[in-house]
């Protein structure tokens, strides 16, 4: 199969490696009269990455992948976690630590469990955020953004 999950990862890595090598080549000649230039090492690393990628792609194409069981359930929770972290970072300064963190922790608790006992989970979220605030701001002197400045 040309496009299973591992192959996609390898193709993306190969594309990034090629992009890296092209950028490295654009830095100039790898060797000058004074010795090695800033382009030399990245060219070496980019080329090595492409070689390793190619070896892995060839290995994957040669070996037949194990067929996935038909009843296997695909989990996409990790993608939702990535989205939650992204939105949390975006909202961190505008909404302040308390509001953004409470929503973030609540969302993660739901993602790692189910949509039951929402009130209890909301209370746990606020408690966690409060304890973390005390730890960061009071104990370790870290200034966290708040809505009141």
């Amino acid at each position: 199969m040309l496009l299973n999950r591992q192959m996609v990862f390898l193709y993306v890595t190969l594309a990034v490696s090629v992009g890296y090598l092209v950028t490295a080549l654009s830095l100039g000649a790898p060797i000058a009269e004074s010795g090695l230039t800033p382009a030399f090492f990245p060219i070496l690393v980019g080329a090595a990455a492409i070689v390793f990628c190619s070896v892995l792609i060839l290995q994957a194409l040669r070996d037949r992948p194990e067929p996935a069981p038909e009843d296997a359930i695909r989990s996409y929770t990790h993608l939702w976690v990535v989205v939650a972290i992204f939105l949390y970072i975006v909202a961190f300064k505008p909404l302040g630590y308390f509001l953004s963190s409470s929503l973030f922790v609540f969302a993660l608790i739901l993602l790692f469990s189910n949509f039951e006992k929402l009130v209890l989970k909301a209370i746990i979220s606020v408690a966690i955020v409060g304890v973390a605030f005390v730890m960061f701001q009071q104990l370790f002197g870290v200034r966290l953004p708040t809505l009141w400045g």
Partner: peptide
Amino acid sequence: DVLYAVIA
């Protein structure tokens, strides 16, 4: 659920 929310 609580553990990984705290870690995150």
